[in-house]
Design a protein around this nucleic acid. Structure first.
Lengths: 223, 223
DNA sequence: AGTTTTTGATAGTATTACTATTATATTTGT
DNA sequence: ACAAATATAATAGTAATACTATCAAAAACT
């Protein structure tokens, strides 16, 4: 990421106290990422996290209202980071098709380099998004949380890429449906390839998920 | 469903005592479907279910080991039912393309008629599958549960439709990826259209999800 | 040095996801 | 019709979870 001092800013509604404002806050975020990945979201608790970082459960509650809100925070961070890479990588590409192509690659490829964005390990965070993020929005509170704007960054990412589709094919009726299918589908396929391989056709080594969805998009919009 | 006396048989590993073997068992299944839909899977408990059907928590545990296993049971029932409809609706269609077309319709359209398959409300069950089924397989136990065959019916549905794709386009490399993308995508889009509408382009009334995915499949496999 | 802010420790609550035991119905076989 | 077998209900109990509340200690700023 070129060593730029870019900083991801997260909406205040997602935390009680900004975890970026202290060493403890950063430790909470970075260690929670590791622990959710290790234990799974269900078995992860603030008590265990406190023990692991030599702090107290009650201190963690001062940063995040609940473990649900911590997950929402992580999801928001992730999509802000994706949005940043998306804008950065597609900027100044003159050809509309090359631009969309670059965008799809950002959305579908495996995160395999930790870009060392401060204290967050993006490789592990990517795994959490794949395995756990659907639990954040598959709840009874989805509508009120959506109104509060918890998912706006994700929606903006979809919108940005949908706009690229519309630039190429102005008459295509379902750009949002197409892009959200691609984003969710690519995540799903990575999970399936590891745990339910017969649902997919992933061959080791080859980057077939990127290939499949890139091809899919251009065929669907008639190019 | 033509009033056929067809019966969906569920693998023994998914229950402790077969819920079909008694009135109480059936009541547990049918009321649990309603309650999971009303409360969401997290807030649903065996205690509440017991109270609601005038039975006891401990009696429910005699049928299902845990609420997770009940969900797995419901998912298995649902895919068995889809498989039945799939085979029924695509049987004897001579044209390969018409056959695939019929299959995609079964997989992507909204379930809006309760086919009154005994005591199970398929409309509500379909909503549960859309909103809750990812919670069944996004756990740390996925690999051992998959080995035990908990998800084999779902995998078989994907396989059946993948085979139809391969019949039409033998050289297409990713039939499983395509079909699992379509199935999961269609569910996702129905959820989004209700709760995160900006991620989709669904217009009221029109059956655009079916249209979108049908078009997608035939374009991707070059027809 | 004093004040504010942050953190830690402890305790407590209601609920959950179970297990175990025993009593009471209900069904079934003869 | 009656005993035996089986199914269900009622109760109690456990360890863990997802918090909240309170207060003391430590750090940080002024």
């Amino acid at each position: 990421m070129e060593n730029l001092q870019v900083h991801i800013v997260i909406s205040q509604e997602l935390y009680t106290k900004n975890p970026e404002s202290s060493a403890l806050g950063k430790k909470i975020v970075s260690r929670s990422i590791e622990m959710i990945d290790e234990l799974g979201f269900e078995a992860f608790t603030f008590k265990k996290l406190g023990q692991s970082i030599g702090s107290n459960e009650s201190s963690i509650y001062r940063y995040f209202e609940s473990k649900h809100m911590l997950l929402v925070y992580l999801i928001c961070w992730y999509w802000s980071w994706v949005e940043y890479r998306l804008v950065f990588s597609t900027n100044n590409i003159p050809s509309k098709k090359d631009k969309l192509n670059a965008a799809i690659e950002i959305l579908t490829r495996k995160v395999d380099v930790d870009n060392s964005f401060s204290y967050i390990d993006e490789i592990i965070l990517n795994r959490i998004i794949i395995a756990e993020s659907s639990k954040a929005y598959h709840t009874k509170d989805i509508d009120s949380e959506n109104e509060k704007g918890y998912y706006k960054v994700y929606k903006r990412v979809v919108q940005r890429v949908s706009n690229m589709v519309t630039e190429i094919s102005p008459d295509f009726e379902y750009p949002n449906m197409l892009i959200s299918t691609v984003i969710e589908g690519a995540h799903q396929q990575r999970y399936f390839s590891k745990h339910l391989p017969s649902l997919t056709d992933v061959t080791e080594g080859k980057n077939c998920i990127v290939k499949f969805y890139t091809d899919l998009v251009f065929k669907v919009i008639n190019c």
